[in-house]
Design a binder for these strands. Structure first.
Ligand SMILES: [Zn+2]
Length: 411
DNA sequence: CCACTTTGACCGGGA
DNA sequence: GTCCCGGTCAAAGTG
């Protein structure tokens, strides 16, 4: 079924911390992703969809959402290790820079320099990043132009390709061996978690751009609404925001351990319809589709051989409301789904997971860019994973937020 | 019996 | 025109 389904609706969502925590926790904890029925409408040719990428970093999660403007992609990456973090950040910067190179090259460089100063980039991730990023970049480049023309958010402007969205600044802790085991065991869980985060981020950033530029399939864009709760929880700043979370992150960062962030499901049911080994990397990629009949939403999850989720990419938006069975996650994530646009893709990368435990894994670590990236930390979280998907039955978990179980608390 | 996961093969796009 | 690769479908298997 479905993965997590937290029952508490927005009303329940209290708050920022809670949400964040929950989210983060989920991410870290969730071992399995989920999948559920889906409908095969789309085919390979989805080219017009938007993708979002979300990256999380371990101690902190950073979220760099690229503006959809560029390519309509939202990327969320999750990073984790400190070491990796730096690298990740750097890499990400590169990527971002590239994407917006045209416009913000100078700025980017400056930022990059800062990051580099800390560490030299270099990492395996690159390979992957390059591929994905570059590949997408290029593609998007083309699309980008079109898109930009079509939708250019006034506020964001074409130049604002990257939206820095504070994904989740939740305290992340979890790095317990247990989690690790879980991760390894189920990538799915990770997936779910990542997914959730990604969605969240997506919405936020996206919502800004999307909302203005693209109308969502839904009559009522869930995006903004949905996001709001999430954002609030996460960052507390909807409008601006993207930084408040940092504070939290800091605290989290303090944590000695890495943090694993697990996200919960997005609230939707996904069904795995394929898996492939990434050629450029050792990681494997799983393809999930929303089970809803007419929903075209899809999600790609990349994980290391170890099973750790490296990256999650969301594509398309749900044209339906999330099944609210009982998952808190859903509340948040689900609401988010409505991003805007038919096709939005969100990419979540869990560097932390990989980095931490699997040197072999490669993900895009880059991560944090200046403003674009924020770190979010999640708390350990719970097992949202359970909720999410496989495990869960809709009501199995009480949900709310169980996730806050931190194994490691922040200092 | 149903729903989901897994796996191999197929298809289309791009280099 | 060919090769490589990503993405998807469909069949089989499992819970
Ligand atoms: Zn859907």
């Amino acid at each position: 079924m479905a993965g997590g389904d937290p029952p508490p609706p927005e009303a329940d969502l209290p708050a920022t911390e809670v949400d964040m925590t929950a989210v983060a926790a989920e991410v870290g904890k969730h071992p399995t992703p989920e999948a559920s029925g889906a409908k095969p409408d789309e085919r390979t040719g989805m080219g017009g969809e938007e993708e979002g990428k979300v990256k999380e970093m371990d101690g902190k999660e950073e979220v760099a959402v690229k503006d959809v403007e560029d390519a309509e992609e939202t990327k969320v990456e999750q990073g984790m290790g400190k070491e990796n973090e730096k690298i990740g950040v750097k890499e990400k910067e590169e990527v971002d820079v590239k994407e917006k190179e045209m416009k913000r090259k100078a700025e980017a460089e400056a930022e990059a320099k800062e990051m580099e100063g800390e560490e030299p980039k270099g990492k395996d991730v690159r390979g992957k990043e390059s591929m994905e990023v570059e590949g997408e970049k290029e593609k998007k480049d083309k699309e980008k132009v079109e898109i930009e023309e079509k939708r250019r958010p006034a506020g964001s402007g074409p130049d604002t390709p990257i939206l820095a969205v504070p994904m989740v600044a939740v305290p992340c802790y979890l790095a317990s061996p247990v989690f690790a085991g879980q991760f390894a065991m189920s990538h799915q869980a990770a997936l779910a978690s990542v997914t959730a985060q990604a969605q969240i981020q997506l919405q936020s950033p996206t919502s800004s751009s999307y909302s203005e530029g693209l109308p969502s399939p839904f009559p009522n864009p869930v995006t903004p609404k949905a996001i709001m709760p999430l954002q609030q929880a996460l960052s507390v700043n909807e409008g601006n925001a993207y930084r408040p979370v940092l504070e939290k992150s800091s605290s989290f960062q303090s944590r000695p351990h890495h943090v694993t962030v697990n996200m919960v499901g997005d609230g939707f049911n996904w069904r795995k319809y394929g898996q492939k080994q990434v050629k450029s990397s050792e990681n494997s990629r799983s393809y999930y589709r929303c089970t809803y009949s007419s929903c075209l939403a899809k999600k790609k999850v990349e994980h290391c051989p170890d099973g750790r989720v490296v990256e999650i990419i969301y594509r398309g938006t749900h044209n339906h409301e999330p099944p609210q069975k009982t998952r808190f996650v859903k509340d948040r994530a689900a609401h988010i789904t409505g991003s805007s646009g038919d096709d939005e893709t969100l990419r979540l990368v869990n560097a932390e997971i990989i980095a931490s435990r699997s040197p072999g894994c490669k993900l895009e670590q880059g991560a944090i860019s200046e403003a674009s990236e924020q770190l979010f930390c999640s708390s350990d979280c719970e097992g949202d994973a359970d909720n999410k998907s496989e495990d869960d039955h809709p009501s199995t978990e009480p949900q709310q937020k169980r996730r806050i179980i931190e194994t490691t608390t922040p200092t």
